[in-house]
């Protein structure tokens, strides 16, 4: 049970006689902040039961990714329903009717800052004021979500080609800047369950990539026969240098235990390609790290149909009606 907000008689009397209970800095006709945030959360489907999103489990089988557009009419109805709470008469209806356009345009802006605020970052000083864009996203159900939590997910409005070259060159910086410019704002990226990831982007992406989380990049060795192991050496552009693989020493007592100190000594003695000065565990780890896998999903196709959202059936019942009068009537009804 909620505790009473006013307990002593003096405070109650003061509150009853106070003419203005709202802080003077708050203009009344705008949405109260909590209400605005609540409705904006609904816009990105936060709190909507999973069964409403995926009404049949076969729509999202195991080990699958499903891209989608968000039906804005659906989320608008969700907001309408929320505002319908306590709507007991024509006064509330008239009020909602008068404010609906303002509420909608305000929420179109607020939905973009939700993720920023959820991450505990300050709201942007110059928020994006452009009109509402098409929301898209994907649902991913995979063991990769469970096993590699917090993977990097990015969506781009153009197809950013994979970068090949020296990561320290100006070209790499230019590539990174281009990619950042083409990146779509992520409005929501959340686990709905340990194995289901939901992402919603602001705009229509041409490229989405899911990258192995950097804190979980593993240390891998190459082997031909599971007896002897080699460490592939990468050149400046990230390519594997042929013939430069370093044999991985193992302990005499156990053939699958890497002799870490000896491996480090060998790395330190290498000259081509040059290794980092082996000062400690960080330099050692860099030489051992496998490259993170970046899965690209390119050229997401829609059916290229832009529909009004009206129902288009599979079965054209109306087309088989031959009586011209009846057909006119039915067309009129539609």
């Amino acid at each position: 049970m909620r505790s009473a907000s006013i307990t002593n008689p003096a405070a109650l009397a003061e509150r009853m006689t106070a003419k203005e209970q709202v802080d003077a800095s708050v203009p009344e006709s705008t949405l109260p902040p909590y209400m605005e945030m609540f409705l904006a959360h609904l816009r990105v489907l936060i709190g909507v039961p999973f069964d409403y999103l995926v009404p049949d489990a076969r729509l999202l089988p195991d080990e699958s990714i499903r891209f989608f557009y968000v039906d804005r009419s659906w989320t608008d109805r969700l907001v309408d329903g929320a505002i319908a709470v306590g709507k007991i008469g024509t006064r509330e209806q008239a009020h909602h009717q008068a404010h609906a356009a303002d509420v909608q345009s305000q929420l179109d802006l607020t939905e973009r800052v939700i993720r920023t605020l959820q991450r505990g970052l300050p709201a942007p000083a110059d928020p994006d004021q452009s009109t509402a864009r098409v929301l898209t996203g994907f649902l991913l159900r995979s063991a990769a979500v469970t096993g590699w939590p917090a993977m990097d997910v990015r969506a781009f409005s153009t197809i950013v080609p994979p970068f090949q070259g020296d990561p320290d060159s100006p070209a790499a910086a230019q590539w990174a800047a281009d990619a950042a410019a083409a990146q779509l704002t992520t409005l929501r990226l959340e686990l709905l369950s340990p194995s289901v990831l939901l992402a919603i982007f602001d705009g229509i992406p041409q490229l989405v990539w899911c990258e192995q989380p950097h804190h979980n990049v593993e240390f891998a060795v190459a082997t031909n026969d599971e007896v002897s192991f080699f460490l592939d050496r990468h050149g400046a552009a990230g390519q594997i240098e042929p013939g430069a693989a370093v044999p991985v020493p193992v302990r005499a007592a156990n053939g699958r235990v890497v002799a870490v100190a000896e491996l480090r000594n060998r790395l330190a003695a290498l000259t081509s390609p040059a290794v980092l000065p082996q000062t400690g565990s960080a330099a050692f780890a860099i030489e051992l790290l496998d490259y993170p896998w970046r899965q690209r999903f390119e050229g997401i196709k829609s059916d290229r149909r832009v529909s009004s959202g009206a129902f288009v059936p599979k079965y054209q019942v109306a087309s088989v009606i031959t009586d011209p009068d009846l057909r006119t009537t039915i067309t009129g009804l539609v």
């Binding site: 557009y69 039906d71 309408d80 829609s302």
Partner: peptide, 18 residues
Amino acid sequence: RGPLVPYNLTRDPLGPYH
């Protein structure tokens, strides 16, 4: 049909609903 659809839909201009 849920909010996730396979193609782009135009937004319903008939609002709000009560």
